[in-house]
Amino acid sequence: MASQAATDQPTVLVVEDEVIIALDLSETVRDMGYRVEGPYANKGHAFIAIDQEMPDFAILDVMTADGEVFPLADALTEAGVPIIFHSGHISECEIAKRYPNALTACKPCPPDKLIQMMSEANKRAH
């Protein structure tokens, strides 16, 4: 995508309304050498961000400060952006029915599993 060509770093959209988790996710993304877009506590701000620049992939909490993240996930899926759902509110089966190509990390997710999922999502983006 355009964002990676411009910076040579994949851009990762992070949408998470729990501050500590959002900071931890962002740090993990940066540690992998990726650029963080966000973190955003609500999907409204994330929509503004993707309108300006589509990320290479996204890490989304299901329940955000302004409701379920699914409208944002639909827009990202339509644009071909790989998604990692990071949530304690919905099962992997429920996600797989609606988003068969998405990856799912149930909270709390061990950092090594999340890192593996980010590597997979980045591969899918290219």
Rank of each mutant, 00 (worst) to 15 (best):
M1G: 11
A2K: 03
A2V: 05
A5N: 13
A6H: 07
T7W: 05
D8C: 09
Q9C: 08
Q9E: 12
V12K: 04
V14C: 02
V14W: 00
E16N: 03
E16L: 02
I20A: 14
D24Q: 12
S26F: 12
S26R: 09
S26M: 07
R30D: 14
R30F: 09
M32H: 13
Y34M: 15
Y34W: 13
V36F: 04
G38H: 08
P39E: 09
P39A: 11
H45P: 03
F47S: 09
F47K: 07
I48Y: 14
A49I: 01
D51L: 11
Q52K: 15
Q52P: 06
E53S: 13
M54Q: 15
M54D: 10
M54R: 14
P55Q: 02
T64I: 00
T64N: 07
A65Y: 02
D66T: 06
V69E: 04
P71T: 04
L72V: 04
A73Y: 03
A75V: 04
L76S: 04
T77V: 06
F85H: 01
G88S: 07
H89C: 10
E92K: 12
C93V: 12
K97S: 13
R98V: 11
R98M: 09
P100C: 04
T104E: 08
C106W: 02
K107I: 03
I115K: 11
Q116W: 09
Q116H: 14
Q116L: 15
M117L: 15
E120D: 15
